[in-house]
Nucleic acid binder design. Structure first.
Lengths: 194, 194
DNA sequence: TTCCAAAACCATAACCGTTAGTGTTACGGT
DNA sequence: ACCGTAACACTAACGGTTATGGTTTTGGAA
């Protein structure tokens, strides 16, 4: 019965969440991630610490609030592609869009902050690992791909590597070209499993 | 000039370190990693908490005490290979040895414990990232490899992926065969950079 | 041999992210 | 109008980690 977005309560909840995220990002950019404590964020957003943690699982999650849909976009690039559309170019397109989003001017200060904090870098990497795993699951489940499970899992990790490598490269577009050329070659030598 | 392993002081320090590591591993295996606190380990090893942290950077580091030389072994597999020995098989041999070490009977309880703890799994992954970076540095610096920097960095990550994937696979040896076949293909399509 | 600087170690207390326990308020459905 | 519960609050704690400041041990020089 698809609850029809009931109303005030959910709006208030979303507002609280947004207020926390906005406050956190502002403070982090002003004073630096490590120099701002959870208690600072909670006080400034005028909520209790426990409330903050009921909206966000960890301090790091405050920073990656929006990027949580990367996971969906990747799996959709697999499941939602045309009937006979080849896999690798579809993944390549999606990764390229993600890289461009991160290296764009709007997100630049945020990613500078991430690079400056060890905790944030490690969190991002473990996020990527989750993405790789869900991508792997999608690949293994795809009936159009006769490759072995190992081959699918491998390609999933390679694709996530491409994102990480391109983001750090001097010329992200050129790096992505080169890396996906390698991925394509790796994919082509795989053989059907059964 | 190159202090010749001075003597008692260093021996005592090493003994303290070993005692801490042994005690920690014993307690972790007995009661479970998450059920043992740093203060427990310190008390049982009869040292102060601050002393423990002067030997180990974190609680997780207590578990991976010995495996810190993985990094050296990988870079040595690159720098120490024969004059015209091809790169990928050399790396493959080293990764295979590492995987066999981890999946061997002796290390089994430890790796079961690691898999059971989120904190340990994440720590191991960030360790691997470090390994990938130092391997990448070694590859970029090797004059026998005319490939581009991007290609070298990419292969470094792929090789570390191979380790992670094979370790989790049902049949590690077969998985390693398959993954390195893919890596070989990726490597062969790279072209000299300049 | 005696003495010194540094290294190793210790005890205490605190900091910070995170969680448990226990209410209180405000909303939505009946 | 009323009840169940979702959202929030407050306090206190837990556990990893670090700062502070002091004590012992050690290697080497005077």
């Amino acid at each position: 019965m698809t609850v029809p977005t009931t109303g005030r309560r959910e709006r208030k909840k979303a507002a609280t969440r947004q207020k926390i995220a906005d406050t956190a990002l502002r403070l982090f950019l002003e004073r630096g991630y490590d120099a701002v404590g959870i208690r600072d964020v909670a006080a400034e957003a005028d909520v209790a610490v426990t409330t903050l943690f009921s909206h966000f699982a960890s301090k790091e999650a405050l920073v990656f609030e929006q990027d949580e849909n990367f996971e969906q976009r990747l799996t959709q690039a697999v499941t939602g592609r045309g009937p006979h559309e080849p896999l690798i170019p579809a993944l390549r397109r999606e990764i390229q869009a993600m890289v461009r989003h991160c290296t764009g001017d709007g997100a630049a200060p945020i990613y500078r902050m991430i690079d400056a904090s060890r905790a944030l870098r490690e969190y991002e990497e473990s996020m990527r690992l989750r993405h790789a795993e869900s991508l792997a699951t999608a690949l293994v489940a795809d009936p159009d791909l006769p490759q072995s499970e190992t081959a699918c899992r491998t390609i999933a990790r390679f694709v996530i590597d491409a994102y990480a490598l391109a983001r750090d490269a001097a010329d992200p577009d050129a790096a992505l070209d080169e890396i996906f050329h390698m991925i394509e070659a790796a994919w082509e030598v795989t053989s059907p499993s059964s």
